[in-house]
Amino acid sequence: MLELIVISTLNGVLFGMLLFLMASGLTVIFSMLGVLNFAHTSFYMLGAFFGFQISRWFGFWPALFIAPVLAGLIGAAVERYGLRHVHKNGHVAELLFTFGLAFAIEEIVQIIWGKSPVDFRVPPSLDFPAFTIFSTNYPAYKMFMLLVSIGIFVVLLITLKRTRIGMIVQAALSHPHMVGHLGHNVGHIFMMVFGVGTALAAVAGVIAGPALVTQSNMAGLLGPILFVVVVVGGLGSLPGAFIASLLIGLLQTFAVSMNGSLAGMFGPLSPDYASTWLSDIWNVTVAQIAPILPYMLLVLILAFRPMGLLGTRES
């Protein structure tokens, strides 16, 4: 039992940190433009594929820096030439624009790299077990993922709260006109933030690519859960996103490790009900519903605390 708890905690934290890597970029963009960027996970995917291609040419370490820069540039271009143009048509149009963009990016990735998973491997320098706990190996690469995520969290937090740039960005979020009057180019700030946000997603992509599968559907797999993280944590709140990522990561891994069901608690149903829809609910295990738990959490949070865990304002 202890073994399962320790290992589930470790796995939950790992998954949660990966979620946070992406959520950090999304939540900053969200609070700036007021728009959920549906294409955010597409940049995560672009990061993974750029990382794959560049690591093929120059190795993994250069890829870890070049791929996010490339993706960030594309992101900045999208903001400058796409979103800004659509902005005047309202939030719905902006949101749908990113929706269409996600669609197009997935197709373009399929055209260039095909629909099958590509062979993106962990760099040899990190391909060894870091430590063994309860006879389960923990790959060094996963520890590396963990360190990078924490590093980014700390750097982001310090940049936003302690530096001049962070102050201007935060001011531009709440009082864009005032910041404009003070002589800052608000459009420029928005573009920069969008670029940095997408670059963060791409970092997550380069790191997650070798650990998970680098395939053209990887964006769609993580998309919805990312929105859950951002909304549950509170729109625009970085610590909120951090807590929500960890919460959802742990929630899912712990649910998976549980076998309980109503039938297990109260005994099987009488044969009269065994073939009705009641039996479906009765026999379903906690592990089976693990993937839908985050959505339940989302609905509950929005119904009872619409600003999210640490958010300060509604939508």
């Binding site: 959920l36 993937p291 339940m296 619409p306």
Partner: peptide
């Protein structure tokens, strides 16, 4: 109860819940 983004997000959550169920 709410419009705007909150409504959109709840609808997304409900849709995922029902589709998975």
């Amino acid at each position: 109860k709410r419009s705007g983004t909150a409504f959109a997000m709840i609808s997304l959550g409900v849709a995922e819940l029902v589709a998975s169920s």
